[in-house]
């Protein structure tokens, strides 16, 4: 892969990988580490992809594997409770902030499938392949995540008027 190709890939996919990692790890520093490790693996791959979508899916799979390695690492900085994080983005509207908080309050597997479904637009079958999970597992997680989000968001929005 040439330098300019790699630079373009960083620009195109850097945030995607970061968001996947952040949704899993809930931690900016770890998510950026995963982004860097994943992109470095891409750099070594030397272009064996059939299409951009193929490349993107490969990156997401690698990022998910990296996230799991990060969690297993003995140097892990364990998940910081949401209220202690100082690196959450500042949102334009309160409903965005509320949605982000409620998604981040989900268990990590739910957060990831929800992100891949609602943001990246992947179907359950594709998410199962990307995350090395059974289709039925992904479907169950999505269903439970939706249920939890609907309840928590309804509560939050009615609280805020």
């Amino acid at each position: 892969m040439t330098d300019s190709q790699f630079e373009k890939a960083v620009e195109t996919y850097g945030d995607t990988i970061f968001r996947v990692a952040y949704s899993y790890l809930k931690n900016r520093s770890d998510a950026e580490d995963v982004m860097q490790e994943t992109l470095l693996k891409l750099y070594q791959e030397d272009g064996r992809f059939e299409s951009e979508e193929h490349r993107k899916r490969w990156l997401i799979r690698v990022a998910v594997n990296q996230c799991k390695s990060t969690l297993r690492s003995t140097w892990l900085r364990r998940t910081v409770p949401l209220e202690e994080q100082t690196d959450t983005p500042v949102f334009d509207r309160p409903e965005q902030s509320e949605l982000f908080d409620q998604v981040m309050a989900l268990p990590k597997n739910y957060r990831l499938v929800v992100y891949l479904y609602y943001y990246e637009g992947y179907q359950a079958r594709e998410i199962a392949e990307l995350t090395h999970r059974n289709l039925s597992t992904v479907q169950t997680w999505l269903m439970r995540a939706r249920g939890q989000l609907q309840r928590s968001l309804k509560e939050a929005w009615s609280r805020n008027g």
């Binding site: 990988i17 970061f18 968001r19 949102f91 965005q96 949605l99 982000f100 609602y118 943001y119």
Partner: peptide, 12 residues
């Protein structure tokens, strides 16, 4: 809303 929200999350 989900996309508007998470599109504001960027790596540094």
């Amino acid at each position: 809303l989900f996309q508007e929200t998470f599109s504001q999350l960027h790596a540094s």
